[in-house]
């Protein structure tokens, strides 16, 4: 497939450094095939949107690990398959509970998932507030101002390595805080499966 050339290690390397433009390329190119697939698999555009959102949220919030992934596209598909599986399982459960086709339960399902995104943001906000002032400063310089690691290092008079470590630590802290609040991002096992 022609988009293979975009989803490569270099792209993942850039995303791992917090490059939003690189993440946008991954998002848009992979959706060319992923979106129609997911839409047919979950049977509605609204549900497809939620599954895609969940998939890429996982990727984004684990970006510090992406540089270590050998087969980026296989890994991404695995994450997407995992989200589809979770969705299908939920649909099956609802079908058994209600005794009706899950398609009719779409609205309720969408509502709960949307709420989760809002909660997610709140939990992340909390996690960032709990970081030490220095780590929080570095994290927000990276995210809010879009600064690159060397730029942050220069402004704060730190080594690029300590800035990088602070960012990795912050993402880890965010995932840990999410896990404590019931939003697990279990990506590590997926990395090993795909190797």
């Amino acid at each position: 497939m022609h988009d293979n050339i975009y989803i490569d290690k270099l792209l993942f390397q850039r995303i791992s450094e917090g490059d939003e433009a690189a993440f946008g390329i991954l998002f848009n190119t992979s959706l060319t095939t992923l979106e129609p697939f997911i839409r047919k698999m979950v049977k509605s555009p609204e549900n497809a949107k939620e599954v895609i959102q969940a998939t890429f949220l996982r990727v984004w919030l684990s970006r510090d690990k992406l540089a270590d992934i050998d087969h980026p596209k296989a890994w991404l598909f695995k994450v997407a398959a995992n989200e589809c599986y979770t969705y299908l399982k939920k649909e099956a459960n609802e079908y058994r509970l209600r005794g009706t086709a899950a398609v009719t339960a779409d609205d309720a399902d969408t509502a709960t998932r949307r709420l989760t995104l809002k909660e997610l943001h709140t939990v992340i906000e909390e996690a960032v507030m709990l970081l030490s002032p220095q780590r929080r400063r570095i994290y927000q310089m990276s995210r809010n101002r879009g600064m690159k690691i060397p730029e942050i290092a220069t402004e704060l008079d730190l080594s690029p390595n300590s800035v990088k470590n602070a960012l990795v630590f912050s993402l880890k802290a965010i995932r840990e805080h999410l896990r404590r609040n019931g939003h697990a991002i279990p990506l590590v096992y997926l990395i090993f499966i795909c190797r």
């Binding site: 959706l31 959102q53 997610l120 994290y139 809010n144």
Partner: peptide
């Protein structure tokens, strides 16, 4: 729609700057 979706994802970990 795609751009909005992308922004909701990358916006998830944008946080309010804290005045120390």
């Amino acid at each position: 729609a795609r751009t909005a979706l992308l922004q909701s994802i990358t916006g998830a970990d944008l946080t309010t700057p804290f005045v120390e």
